[in-house]
Design a protein around this nucleic acid. Structure first.
Lengths: 208, 208
DNA sequence: GTAATATTAGAACTGATATTCTAATATCAT
DNA sequence: ATGATATTAGAATATCAGTTCTAATATTAC
């Protein structure tokens, strides 16, 4: 019953995503989203309680999608290969999702939520964080037999930080990360993960 | 002649820097800067033509200072050691300059300047970019005998991207990067820089 | 058709922000 | 002291953004 939607939530969200990617969260004003999506402001407020809910929803959607892929990349028998596969997920994902990548890599949580979070968004965000932490801990155990702070730092460094740092400059300039990046990420990731805190080190040889 | 300043430009800039670090560029409203620094808005506009000039000035000041240190770290005889020294500059600088680090690592140029830039700020920014590029090219030549695109990518990756990525999570959480980070940066930086595109590789052995 | 309802439409309202403006105040040169 | 001037001081103004509100419109159930 009721009138059929002309402007779906997805249409509005997609327009907002694009604007955020280009001009940042603060650039995504309601009137700009209205202009780009065609939906009148009334329709936007008919679907989202307020602007925070809108941006939070978009941000969570992108992070959830990215993280699902990242964690999925860990699904390999050999833990070292799993780690490298996860590290290489970032450049690949960035190549395939340039708009989402700008949102994810060029902004922080804080740009989307200030202070307290609306509705169940807090729960969604906490679930995400917990899942990521648990995946990292899982790999740490597989690699080193422990999920100590130190082991976790190593895993975070190798799987996320290197990739993130290396890819960011290309996201900023709007270009696809060149393939060489992957080779360097793999090299760095391997040498960092191979290091073991005293236990016998699994020797992995060069591949080319 | 004229009245003596009660609120120096530095006082105002310092307050603004702190606000930007905490709440982002858009959080640094004129009235908030006024409140935090004590200077009335009239005094702020007496020193800065407008808000953009203020934020641009602060951003450039931080980047100039950081970059001076980074390039200075390259001043070593052995090019590999110079590269590692530069890569380790980031975590050290972050430890010593937590406020400036938030500004530098958690925001982009675009947050400070939108579109066209005021006055001679464009020139300052271009000088900075040119100096950094030239430093990177210099190291590339010393390491590989060429400043090819590929060699530059390698240097950027090893000197800046790894460090940036690894340090960012600590800047976000407001903690000092733990010392282990430096060891991992060094490892990764070394393995990436040592790789030579066919030329004989200089063997460097483990140190601990 | 009629009632109920989801949606569109955008004008009106409210608050915040950047900037301007006018007046007051303190310091220096003479 | 007097004039010139740099600075303080903050009220006034204009603009813009988020949000609310009221009316119109289209669709479904009956």
């Amino acid at each position: 019953m009721g009138r059929q939607p002309v402007f779906s939530k997805e249409k509005i969200a997609k327009a907002a995503l694009k604007i955020i990617a280009e001009r940042g969260v603060d650039g995504a004003t309601i009137s700009e989203i209205s202009k780009q999506s065609g939906a009148p402001v009334g329709s936007i407020y008919h679907r989202y309680a307020d602007r925070r809910e809108l941006t939070a929803d978009i941000w969570l959607g992108v992070v959830e999608e990215f993280q699902k892929g990242l964690i999925g990349a860990l699904d390999k028998d050999d833990p070292l290969e799993a780690g490298i596969s996860a590290a290489l997920f970032m450049p690949n994902w960035v190549r395939g999702h340039p708009v989402e990548a700008r949102l994810l890599l060029l902004h922080h949580r804080e740009d989307f939520f200030r202070g307290d979070w609306p509705g169940d968004y807090k729960a969604r965000a906490e679930t995400l964080a917990a899942e990521l932490e648990s995946a990292a801990a899982g790999l740490a155990v597989r690699l080193y037999g422990t999920a100590s702070k130190s082991a976790l730092r190593r895993v975070n460094f190798a799987l996320m930080d290197i990739s993130y740092g290396s890819v960011k400059r290309y996201v900023i300039s709007g270009k696809k990360p060149p393939p060489e990046i992957d080779a360097m990420i793999e090299k760095a990731c391997r040498v960092v993960l191979e290091e073991t805190g005293g236990r016998e080190k699994k020797v992995t040889h060069e591949r080319k």
